[in-house]
Design a protein around this nucleic acid. Structure first.
Lengths: 241, 241
DNA sequence: CACTTCATATAGCGTTGCTATAGGTGCTAG
DNA sequence: CTAGCACCTATAGCAACGCTATATGAAGTG
């Protein structure tokens, strides 16, 4: 029941903290519980991690790598928007599998402390959306799309975590997911008055922009490129009233 | 700088807790800080609120009433979907104005403890969406729509709170908002392959369903009504593959 | 006046995160 | 082989935490 094996104390502390965090059921986890389970005394913890939060950050970082690994496994299907869907589902599943870890990562966000991890997740999704943009499937800038989709993804996951496993309805996830993806995708019926109806030149501009940034083309001088990109940006944002 | 006025200790505790919570900047707030600011000793707190969490719940309840009051002020514009938009914006604004309170309400959700407040917010939005459904403007059941929109709303607000006030870009909010509302609304161009393209009979069924539940019609016996509603439900869900 | 009830205060318990200090370990240098 | 030197861990304990057993005062009721 303890981690008294021959592993180094640092690893034992990490595993003990992860296990207690996962099984605490929302209750607070004390450093004494952790050090006792790890078979170690208090100063060892502070020698290696400086802080209780330092330890938790390390656990979160490990959890995040696991999350990222899961996201990357799905990469190359040829249909970027389909991949986004799978990223979404993987995100939700990760949150439901490790709710405590997820809440530490995405729920307890404070203005100055945590957004590094969120930024990483954002970058991951933006990267995927970039492929969609290059393929001319995007309605808006990849960065804006990524932020928007991720925000909805987090919100849905938090709501599902808050529900008991019995009444949990994953349709909420798929419905919101498809709504968000549809909203940023280019293949909408044109002529809709409210939100879609972006002219195809906007889609083309976004695609060109993404392609340019990906290829590091040096057909234009850097100053020319800068101006050119600015124009593209203006075109592709022309629909925001 | 303290609440030593002639107010009753219970009120002073509430105000002191609210102020410390609002100005703590994310740091933990101790009962000793609260009782000192309120000019009261520890047992008084436990006499009135039983618990530290009891006090915080009371603060949250007060904050929630403020929130609900803000939501209700906007009610009657005649355009339900426009009202939903304003509810969304009001929600975001509440979160940005009182980030600490908001995080306690929507960020620290634990599976078994908190969803009462979330359920209230959900009901509020569903009520509004019901009007949209009666007017034939809804693509999905009001309850599902409310859950989906609220989840996205919370996600966006959390993401905006996590950013520093300087880099905060409210376009994320409006974009996500319009995407969600468009996704549940009936006035989409039909014929889109992926997400929309629901036949108008579905919209009509949802509208009729909402109207029936609102009017408590007694033209049918209760058992007949039950069966009838079940059929309607089946029709209006016929698009979920 | 005696009596109950409510509200606040005194003092302190057990636990928390964390640390000043010291001791043990394995290494390379002489 | 010993001296010195990092490195890592343990003993012991501090201040702050949430909370409470107990006592005291104030207010209303017979």
């Amino acid at each position: 029941m303890s981690f008294d094996g021959q592993l180094p104390p640092k690893t034992r502390l990490l595993r003990a903290a992860a296990e207690l965090l996962a099984n605490s059921g929302g209750a607070a986890v004390s450093t004494r519980q952790i050090t006792q389970l790890a078979g170690v005394t208090a100063p060892t913890l502070y020698h290696h991690f400086g802080d209780k939060e330092g330890l938790f950050d390390a656990v979160v970082a490990a959890g995040f790598e696991e999350y990222v690994a899961g996201e990357r496994d799905f990469a190359p299907s040829g249909h970027p928007l389909e991949d986004i869907r799978r990223m979404w589902d993987n995100h939700v599943q990760f949150g439901l599998n490790q709710p405590e870890l997820y809440l530490v990562m995405f729920g307890n966000i404070r203005p100055e402390s945590r957004p590094a991890i969120v930024a990483d997740a954002e970058a991951l999704m933006e990267e995927m959306l970039n492929k969609a943009a290059v393929a001319g499937q995007l309605n808006v800038q990849p960065r804006e799309a990524a932020r928007s989709i991720l925000a909805a993804n987090v919100g849905v996951t938090l709501m599902l975590i808050a529900e008991t496993a019995a009444e949990r309805n994953l349709e909420l996830s798929t419905m919101t997911r498809d709504a968000m993806i549809f909203a940023v995708s280019a293949d909408q019926a044109s002529g809709t008055p409210e939100d879609s109806g972006k002219s195809s030149v906007v889609v083309a501009a976004i695609a060109l922009n993404a392609a340019l940034q990906a290829s590091h083309s040096d057909q234009l001088s850097s100053s020319e490129l800068k101006l050119f990109l600015e124009w593209l940006h203006r075109i592709s944002n022309s629909s925001t009233s």
